[in-house]
Amino acid sequence: MSRYLLNKFLYTVDRDPALVERYREDPRGTVTWWEAERANQILNCHVPEASTWLRFADVEREALASHDYVKLFELGAHPFLTLTLFIAMFERDHEPLGFQQEYARRLAHFSLPYPDIAT
């Protein structure tokens, strides 16, 4: 598993409104496309360079494809990155602060120490 790759996905998708919508509407397709086309691009590199080894583990891919932010948190995805992306996708479907409250409710069973989020 790669917390780096999970966080990279959350970070890059969250910063592109078109990708946010694509991920909302077609999560599995977006994850498959992103893994094939973007996972190995070097982050914030202005010249076309890429690595070749980064891949999601099956459990990571499934959690992303099913919008399972509880599982992503359990896997060590950074909670701020997860929360901001999922707010962008689902806040419109809730009352004001409703999604944030739902997020907190669904993560309430975690206690300290939280899963390690170091990359």
Rank of each mutant, 00 (worst) to 15 (best):
A104G: 09
E62Y: 00
L54Q: 10
I87P: 13
S111H: 11
A50T: 08
E37G: 04
K71A: 15
G76T: 05
K8F: 05
Y114D: 13
V59Q: 03
I42M: 05
L107A: 00
L107H: 06
W53P: 02
P79D: 05
T30D: 10
A50R: 12
F90Y: 15
T30Y: 08
S111L: 05
A88H: 10
N7Q: 11
V47K: 09
R105T: 10
R15T: 12
E35Q: 11
N7I: 01
F86W: 09
F90D: 02
L6V: 10
I87E: 15
E49R: 11
R3K: 13
L97D: 13
R55G: 03
E62K: 02
P27L: 01
H46W: 15
S51M: 06
D26K: 04
L5W: 06
P48D: 05
S111W: 02
D16N: 02
P17Q: 12
L72R: 00
H46F: 14
V13E: 00
E37I: 01
E60M: 04
E25M: 14
L72H: 13
A36C: 07
R55Y: 08
V31W: 03
F90E: 04
Y23V: 02
E25L: 14
V20L: 07
H109G: 11
L112T: 15
H67N: 11
E62I: 00
L83S: 11
W53Y: 15
R92L: 11
F9S: 01
L85P: 00
F99W: 15
S66N: 13
F73D: 01
A108M: 01
P27T: 01
R28G: 10
H109L: 11
A108N: 07
S66K: 06
L81W: 11
R38K: 09
R28F: 07
P113R: 03
I42W: 04
P17H: 04
N40P: 00
H78Y: 08
L75V: 06
H94P: 12
D116N: 10
Y23P: 03
P96E: 07
T82K: 11
H67L: 08
L64T: 06
A57Y: 10
D68N: 12
S66I: 06
A118N: 13
G29I: 00
G76H: 14
L43D: 09
P115V: 05
M1W: 08
P79N: 00
E21Q: 13
H109M: 05
F80L: 15
A18V: 12
A65S: 12
D116F: 03
R55S: 12
E74I: 03
D16E: 14
A108K: 10
E49M: 11
E37V: 07
P48Y: 05
R105P: 09
R15E: 04
A18S: 13
V70M: 02
D93M: 01
